[in-house]
């Protein structure tokens, strides 16, 4: 079965743009990206849209559908209110390049600012041995497909452009949590305190744990509960727990 739907797609570039209406056919079982492709094939061949896998695994097709950050390839038409116009815009936190395509370079910049995994001394690659229970927590975070929907929805940067330099965003604070929980990461031996730098250099304190990142994550990662709040608690250990603080003053070498 197929029907006609009204799609309202944002078209334009950094100079300006507008929502443009399209009447387009929708068939059973289709996702929003199918319909956008049909618009591209039949009505607007120059419509810019980024996509790769159509399987919710590459993280390319992030956009906002009826005002909610989502993957276009994972949003079934049957889950949208029937008969109503479907509005699609690019992600509204990043600079727009054209139509539905944004410049997500902010996220790559933030990724580079997080110090990488530091291998333990005396253990060669290939000799790493870890227990499953020690990596369970990190494995949840490794499901991330880098769609940056969490970065897009986080009000810290979405609503405050000026916070971008100071705030790494949920995806990269989660990366810090992952490394801090990593059974082999040797950052501490090199004098790098990931707990304290998360707060001092990567803006952990900006997050007010209102969980929008968790709400939009297409991988269902419990970003706030399992990464951000544990990281905040770890920062408290380092900075606000007098006993831990005293211990670290007395025994300088950990």
């Amino acid at each position: 079965m197929s029907y006609e739907a009204t799609f309202r797609v944002w078209r334009g570039d950094a100079e300006g743009g507008e929502l443009t209406d399209f009447q387009v056919e929708v068939n059973d079982g289709e996702v929003v990206l199918d319909v956008v492709h049909r618009i591209q094939a039949t009505q607007a061949p120059d419509l810019a849209v980024r996509w790769n896998c159509k399987a919710g695994k590459c993280g390319s097709c992030s956009a906002e559908i009826n005002g909610r950050p989502r993957l276009m390839c994972m949003t079934r038409m049957s889950t949208l209110p029937p008969g109503e116009t479907v509005t699609i815009t690019p992600m509204r936190t990043f600079p727009v390049l054209r139509d539905l395509v944004t410049d997500v370079g902010f996220n790559y910049q933030k990724a580079r600012e997080i110090p990488a995994f530091i291998p333990p001394q005396g253990v060669k690659p290939g000799e790493y041995r870890m227990q499953q229970e020690d990596v369970n927590r990190s494995q949840e975070f490794r499901k991330c497909i880098e769609c940056f929907l969490c970065q897009d929805t986080c009000h810290v940067v979405r609503d405050h452009e000026e916070n971008k330099p100071a705030f790494a965003g949920p995806r990269f604070l989660m990366r810090m949590a992952e490394l801090d929980m990593h059974p082999l990461d040797a950052a501490g031996d090199q004098g790098l305190d990931r707990k304290a730098t998360a707060q001092e250099e990567h803006g952990l304190g900006y997050c007010n744990i209102t969980k929008c990142c968790t709400e939009v994550c297409p991988e269902g990662i419990k970003i706030t509960d399992n990464a951000l709040i544990p990281l905040k608690e770890r920062a408290v250990d380092r900075k606000y727990d007098p006993l831990v603080w005293l211990g670290s003053k007395i025994s300088r070498r950990r």
């Binding site: 334009g12 743009g17 005002g67 690019p90 509204r92 990043f94």
Partner: peptide, 12 residues
Amino acid sequence: GRAAIAQRHLRL
């Protein structure tokens, strides 16, 4: 630099 959309949100 961001997409020029007048509405503060488009949630329905």
